[in-house]
Every structure is written in structure tokens, then in C-alpha cells.
Nucleic acid binder design. Structure first.
Lengths: 341, 341
DNA sequence: CTGTTAGCGCCTTCAC
DNA sequence: GTGAAGGCGCTAACAG
């Protein structure tokens, strides 16, 4: 295959020399422009012989397109995000785009650094779930990029398209279900108001009570860090208190882990002693014994929607510049809730 | 901030003009070379004023380094891989490298396409868990790249460093534990011989019997696809047969999902009716009721080891060109196994 | 310490 | 349909 004995990989010039044509002609072959059959064969043979691989960096330099998009999230090892990444990658790779993934670890400063880095890398687009919507820093950074942005479940007043999950309506479905089972005292443990998911879940929770003609139990709306530790601590507190709620809703898959730990530790039986609903379809929810009822949304759809909007923008669509796409939530009833009598 | 009214972002030339110095000087400032304080201030002011962001593509073109590494795996949404990706990203980003992630979906053809793509992108290095070690195609592709490669738990006769998990020794620990509990009839459900994990788990399983002076129960070494469906089918078959084993080992986290489904479906009690051990520490193992005993390895360490070796190679280390680094496995005893009487 | 200049590999006019 | 030449933005000599 390879011919050259020099160290550096062959360039388009080497191919041209080998084939006895000009570099322009080789470029045309590379880009599928029309050339004579004779020349086509000549060039392809030369490419084979030299083991030539076009330099995408040089192509990007010239065409001003990297065919790469960035994905910035808190933590790629969170199954929710890795699921979205998977779906996004599938869609993008079909269109010959590559995915640059970076985790912020909930660090706003790092988040800004990553965006700057992707900006310098001249990615063609960015999908991002900002760590904190109230951080003015990230907003001003995002306002100063040249490429289209898709926001994952975040509400930011910047020029970007958004994918929004219908957390509130999902929460209402869950509460209606619990109300129908006779539950009065339901607690929600979820993230704080710094990002949409926690805020919307809390909103849906409150509205469900109102719409049902009940008073909103403010002491049962427990918001904080969207992680396992917080779920564990708050669940423990609930379970230790004299008036334990009859049902708990885990507002996030990490929160669920924490709650489950607290449940296990006290030998609380689900659903006999406590009814439990979680948000997001993850392995543990379906495989747990009993299987856990969840408010679910289609993660694959999230990735596809993000990819589609982004690709459209990259290809020059400038219409409806602040589009919002909603992802439906549904209640998947399993065996973690029991009627209260 | 930004000043220019033209559409394209400012270049180093614009900065130079604005600061009243030469491009070479601006470049020196960008790269932290020594310049006079006066000039430094001038240049930085100009950069601020223009909102200048160095073009990494042009830098890569010139320096022949992209500061990007590729990660190729079956499926980024598999918690094992996303955990490795996370750890890798953490290490790499500390050194200002970015991570290009792509999933092959177990498709060898696609795998080759991805490697070619990363080759064209001129990544500085590659971490890859090849889909099928016996695929000659991927080997010849990998032999023809210019950058260092780290193999994740794969045995390939190519010029690359490898991280190998000690599956066999972990398996022996598990069996010794089960033997001590009095189990005689243990079945293993795992992947086939096309990649190291399945092969090594089967080897460890067999050797554990031999070392214990027992005959290897070949009909209990069940190898096939490393996915949930296979786990489900094979577990179902075991459970339906007249002589059900007293213990089952799930050789992979996906396999475990399938086995759990089969268990649930038949209301088999763990560990009363069946003892269960799984490979790999994942959420479901620890959170399940009862918590499942696992053969675990440190995923974070895998990512770190891969990052470290790769960075060393990128920085020109040519010693010991086929290094192998082993990752220890340990048995984390929980509550999914009971003594047999 | 600073300015000038020659490419890195490719695509894209512009002639022919 | 093909060749020649300019330049994308940057860095690394080389002079001064």
C-alpha cells in the first residue's frame, strides 16, 4: 500500500504527482466533481498506492466548516445524558458530523472554559445543558459564538433553539394517579430552581394540588441539589419524622438512587409502606423489585430533535430563530404505588 | 466588546493592526512567549476590544497537533463505557485535550469508517474497544494510523498499548466464594470469544473448577451476545430446565439486566432460591434488593490509565511500545448469595 | 524584544 | 475537463 519512505503522510500534492495530474484535479475527485473516467482512475490508483487520507484540518481551514458539533453536559456518566449523547451521535454521524463531548461537573467556570475551547475549535454547532440558568457569565459567552446553539431543557434568554421536556404535565399525571389511589400526603424531592427540570417539576407539583382543589403542601416541596446525596438526606428526614408522607416522588434519577438507599436502610416496604414514583426511565426503575412507576420521556427523541434543529441551522435555516420543541412526558405505571385505605 | 462590523471573526492580523504590532508579536503573546510589558498590554487590549478568539483549526494546521483524542466504543449509553468516557475526559481536559466520542453499535464496518474519519481529522491519539478482535479489517486500518492507540480490554496484535482487566482472577474469586458457600452447580452467562471480557471470564470460570479439583461443567459455560436479550433467554432456559443451577454468574451488566428480568418473571427469590453474582459495578447492582454481589474493577482507573499512557505517547515516549496495564478485579460481597445446605 | 516571511494542505476562482 | 495560483489563520524561523 504505502509507498513513501518519508515520515509525514502524503498530501494532495503527492497524489497529484503520482497520478500525473494537477492538485486541482485531485481535489475535484475528492469532492465528487465531474472528471473524465481516465483521470478518475488515475487519481484513485494514486490514492490507493500512497495510502492517502485527506487532511480534514486543512479542509476545515479552507471551507470554514469542521463538521463537528459540541455537546456540553454536567456528567456524561449520568445515564440520562449518555442516552441523549447516544441518540445525538447516531443522528449526527449519519450526516458525517462528529461529536465533541465535555462534562462540566456542575462547575460554571469550567463550563465557560469548555465553550471557549469549542469556540476556538470552530465547531459547527453546540448542544448544551447549562449548569445554572442564572449564571450571567455563561450567557454572555454563549451570546458571543458564531455557531447555532441548541439548549437542552434550559430557559435562557439568548439566541438559541430549545428542547423542553414537559415535566410539569408529567408531574400532574403522577399526582392525579396518586390522588386517585387515595394519597393525600405526597412529597416531592427534586432539584432547585436553577434549572428548568427542578423548577418545572415543582411547578407541576403545586399546580396539581391546586387543580384538584387542594392546598399546596409547601413543606412537601423539597428542592435542592439534583444528586443522590440530597435524595438520601431528604428521604431520610422524611422517614424519620413523625408524619411520614404516604407517597414520595423522586424528581430525578440520581435523587431516586438516594431515596432507594434510605428506603433500604429502614426496611421500608414499597408499595405497602410507601408509594414511590420517579422521573426518567432508567435501568434501575424498570429492574427494581417492585418495578418503579416513572414519569418518562423519550430520550432518543430528545437527541434526534436536537440533531435535527442543529443540522437545519447549520445548513443555513434562519427562520423562527428561537424555536422551542416540547418533548412529551407520560406516566408509566408499574408496581411501586398502592392504594391507600 | 466586539468592534468589527464585518461578518467574519477577527484574525490575528486584525489584532496586530489594532495593537499596532506585527502578527508575530501577537502570536508570541498568544503562546506565552516573552514580550515587553508595554506590548503585552497593547495586544491584550486589542484582543479584548475585538473579542478575538484564536482559530484552533489554523493552529492545528500549522502545529500539526489537534489536541483532540478519539474514543471509539460500542455504545456510549452503556454505563460502563460512559463511566470510562467520564474519567478519560476528566484526565484529558486537565491537559487541555478534547474528546471525540463515537459509538459503533457493534458494527465492524461502521467502526472502520469512524477510525478513518478520526484519522482524517488528525486526532492526536485514540482509545478504542474494538467490536470484534477477529476482524482483520479493523486491524489493518489501525495499523495504518499515525497516532498512538490505547486498546481497552482487547487483545490485538497491532502496535498499541493496552489496558487489560483481570476478569479471570475476578471470576476465580467469585467461584471460590460460591464453592465455600457449598455451591456445586454454578452457571456462567457471558459474551463469546470475540472479545477479551467474555473469553477471559470463561477461562477464569473453567480454571476455578480445575484448581478446585473439580470437573469443568462445560454445559454451564454459556457464551453468546453480550446483551440483555441473551441474558434473558439463557437464564430463562436454565430456570425452565429440570436441573436448575444453584448459582448463576452474570458476565456483564447487560447480561445481568436480562437475567433479572427472567428472575422477576418467575418469582425466583434471590438468594433463597438462587445465588447471583454479576460483573461490573453498576447502579442496579448496588441498589437492587437484595444488593448484588459483584466482581468489580475500578472504572475510573481504567480511564486514567488510558489517558496517562496516551498522553505519554503523544508527548513522544517511544519506550516499551507494547505496554500492557492490568486493572485488578475484586469481589464485592453483598447479599445475593446464600449458603447451600 | 520585535517585524517579516514562508509555508502547513486544501479548495476555488480564473483561464485555457 | 483541466492546470495554475491565491489565500484560509496561524507559527516558526530568520533578521534586525
Amino acid at each position: 500500500m504505502a509507498d513513501k519512505t518519508t515520515s509525514s503522510p502524503p498530501t494532495i500534492r503527492d497524489v497529484a504527482a503520482q497520478a500525473g495530474v494537477s492538485v486541482g484535479t485531485v481535489s475535484r475527485v475528492l469532492n465528487g466533481k465531474s472528471v473524465s473516467n481516465r483521470v478518475l482512475a488515475l487519481v484513485n490508483t494514486a490514492i490507493q498506492k500512497l495510502g492517502y487520507s485527506p487532511n480534514a484540518v486543512a479542509q476545515s481551514m479552507r471551507t470554514k466548516s469542521t463538521r463537528a458539533v459540541g455537546l456540553i453536559i454536567n456528567d456524561i456518566s449520568n445515564p440520562l445524558f449518555s442516552g441523549i449523547a447516544k441518540s445525538l451521535d447516531d443522528c449526527l454521524s449519519e450526516n458525517e458530523y462528529s461529536l465533541l463531548i465535555a462534562s462540566t461537573n456542575n462547575d460554571s467556570r469550567r463550563e465557560r472554559v469548555i465553550v471557549e475551547s469549542l469556540k476556538q475549535r470552530r465547531v459547527d454547532g453546540l448542544v448544551i445543558a447549562v449548569t445554572d440558568e442564572r449564571d450571567e457569565g455563561i450567557k454572555s459567552v454563549l451570546r458571543n459564538v458564531e455557531f447555532p446553539i441548541v439548549l437542552l431543557d434550559r430557559d435562557l434568554d439568548i439566541s438559541a433553539d430549545s428542547i423542553w421536556d414537559e415535566h410539569a404535565s408529567g408531574m400532574k399525571k403522577a399526582l392525579r394517579y396518586l390522588f386517585d389511589l387515595g394519597h393525600q400526603d405526597v412529597a416531592l424531592i427534586t432539584g432547585d430552581d436553577s434549572i428548568r427540570p427542578g423548577r418545572e417539576r415543582a411547578r407541576g407539583f403545586r399546580e396539581a394540588f391546586k387543580e384538584n382543589g387542594r392546598q399546596v403542601p409547601e413543606n412537601r416541596v423539597i428542592q435542592g441539589r439534583l444528586n443522590s446525596q440530597f435524595g438520601y438526606e431528604e428521604a431520610s428526614r422524611l422517614f424519620e419524622s413523625s408524619n411520614r408522607p404516604s407517597a414520595v416522588i423522586a424528581g430525578g434519577n440520581q435523587i431516586l438512587s438516594g431515596i432507594l438507599r434510605a428506603i433500604r436502610q429502614r426496611n421500608i416496604r414499597v408499595p405497602e409502606d410507601l408509594s414511590l414514583i420517579s422521573c426518567d426511565e432508567v435501568d434501575i426503575a424498570a429492574l427494581m423489585d417492585p418495578p418503579i412507576t416513572v414519569i418518562s420521556r423519550d430520550i432518543v427523541q430528545v437527541g434526534q430533535a436536537a440533531a435535527n434543529i442543529l443540522l437545519r441551522r447549520i445548513n443555513g435555516d434562519v427562520s423562527n430563530s428561537h424555536s422551542r420543541q416540547f418533548i412529551a412526558t407520560e406516566l408509566v405505571v408499574r408496581e411501586s404505588c398502592a392504594p391507600l385505605h
